[in-house]
Simulated scan of single mutants.
Amino acid sequence: MADVTRRLFLRHLRGTPTSWVRLHVGGRVRREGVGQSFWYRPLRAVLSEVPVDDRELPLLFHARTGDFADITVQATVTYRVADPALAAGRLDFSVDPRTGRARARPLDQVATLLAELAQQPALDLLARVPLAEALTTVAPVREAVSDALATEARLADIGVAVVSARVVAIRPEPELERALQTPTREAVQVQADRATYARRAQAVAQERAENPAAPPSSPSPTPAAATGGGQFATALTLRTSPGSTASRSYTVPRNRVLLLTDFLVDNPQGDTGTLTITADDVRVVTYGLENFRNQDYHSVTPIRVPAGSRVTLTVECRQPGTPVGAATPGTCQEGLYLNGILNRTRP
C-alpha cells in the first residue's frame, strides 16, 4: 500500500516499486506508473493502486476418480497483474485519497476466478482414470491446469497472467491410504521376519558348535536309554472362535522320546489374543497374537518330552484379524511347526 501523508489541505503519495498507481483529476489521467511520488488535492483526485508483484495462490480441493474414490488435490498457482491499466478499468482497485486505504478487495475476485479455472481441468482429467493411476498422474494434472490457465480469455480480459501452476500432492482419504500401504508394509515385514529367523538360526547353530550340549538326563531314577532316532517334524493347526479357548496337541508315541530343538508359530490373519505352548505339562512360552505374524523359537539345550507326554498349542482368541484383500474370517487361525529328534527308548 502506498504511503499517504498530509500537509494542510494537500496530500502526498509515495508509491512502491511493485505498485502501479494512477491519478485521475477531473476525469483525465494526470499520472500513472510504478514508483510514483506526487502531491494532490484529495477532493479532486481519484486514485487507483494495482499490485504488480508475483503472488502465490494455494489451492486445496476434492475430486473423484473414475472408480468413485474421493481424493484431495493440493496445488499452487503463481500469478501477477501483467496489464495494470486494463485491470484498473475492469476491477475496483480504487483507494481512499485521504488515507490511501483500498476501498474494495479486487484480488479476492482474482483468486476466486483462478481457483475455479484451475479446478475444472483437474476434475475432468481425474474423473476419467482409476484411483491407482490418479495417484501417479501428477504431471498430467499439472500440464492440464497450466494449459487451461494460459489460454483462458477471461484472465487476459482483466490483465492477469499466470506465471506457473504446480500440483504439490494428490492423496486419497486417510483410511484408503492406509489400506493401499498395507501390502507394502506386509511385504517388508515378511522380509524382516525371514532375516530375523535366519539370523537366529545362525546364532543357535554357532552356539551349539561352540558349546556342545551334554546328553539330556532323565528325571526318573531308572531312566530309559535312548537309541538311534531320526529327524522329527510335524505341524499343528488350530481354529478358535472369538471369545473362546481351544487346544491341539501332539503326543509322543510309546518307546520314544522327543528332543524338541526348534518351533515356529504362525498367525497369518493377524488375530488378537494369546498363544501358549506347553511341553510335558510345563509352559514353554506365551505370546500375544497381536505382536507377531510368525515367530520362531530355538533351544540350545533340547527340550525333552518323554513317551506319552504332549506338546500342546493353546489359543485364546479375542478377535480374528483381516487378511489383505479378503473378508474378515469368523475364527482365529494359528499354526505350530515342531522340529527336533525322535529317538527310540529301551528299558
Rank of each mutant, 00 (worst) to 15 (best):
A87R: 07
R185M: 05
A2K: 10
Q269E: 08
G270C: 00
G321W: 03
R105P: 03
R178Q: 10
L86S: 01
P320S: 01
I341W: 07
T301M: 03
G273Q: 03
Q120G: 00
D53I: 05
R142E: 15
L107Q: 07
V141M: 04
P42Y: 12
D281K: 14
A205E: 03
V77H: 00
V284W: 15
V34N: 02
E177A: 11
D92G: 04
D92N: 12
S299W: 07
R154K: 09
D262W: 06
L91F: 01
A69T: 13
P212H: 06
P140Q: 06
E290R: 13
D271C: 03
R254H: 15
T312K: 02
D54V: 13
T78M: 08
A115F: 09
A88V: 04
D271P: 05
E316T: 15
N339A: 11
L149I: 06
A156D: 08
T245R: 04
R55I: 01
R30K: 09
R293S: 09
A85F: 08
I71D: 07
A139N: 12
D3I: 15
T286S: 02
V252N: 02
V160D: 06
E186F: 11
C332P: 07
L258F: 10
T234Y: 04
R310N: 12
D280S: 14
V168Y: 08
Q109D: 15
V311R: 04
E210H: 12
A205Y: 01
A69W: 13
V110K: 07
R248M: 06
S299E: 11
L338W: 09
A165M: 03
A279M: 08
A307L: 03
A195H: 13
L59F: 06
V110T: 10
A132G: 10
A226Y: 12
V46N: 11
V81S: 07
L289R: 03
L258I: 04
N255R: 08
G26I: 05
P242G: 07
L59I: 00
T234M: 04
W39A: 05
P106T: 00
G340L: 03
R98E: 15
R310D: 14
V95N: 03
P106F: 02
D54F: 12
F263C: 05
R142L: 11
R318G: 05
V168K: 05
A69H: 15
D92A: 02
S217I: 14
F38S: 00
L275E: 01
A87D: 05
P212E: 04
V252E: 05
C332Y: 04
P130H: 09
A102G: 15
T276F: 07
L259I: 03
A122P: 12
Q109E: 15
A75T: 00
G243R: 00
T245Q: 02
L86Q: 09
L107G: 08
P97A: 08
P97D: 01
E116M: 09
R318K: 02
R199H: 14
V4S: 06
S299P: 10
A104L: 04
A225W: 15
T276E: 02
L289K: 00
A187M: 13
S164Q: 07
T301D: 12
Y40H: 01
T78P: 02
A326G: 08
V282Q: 14
V46M: 12
Q231F: 15
Q269C: 05
R128V: 14
R208I: 04
P221F: 10
Q202Y: 15
N339C: 11
T137C: 09
S241D: 10
Y79C: 01
P58R: 11
E210G: 10
A279T: 10
L47P: 02
A111T: 09
P216R: 08
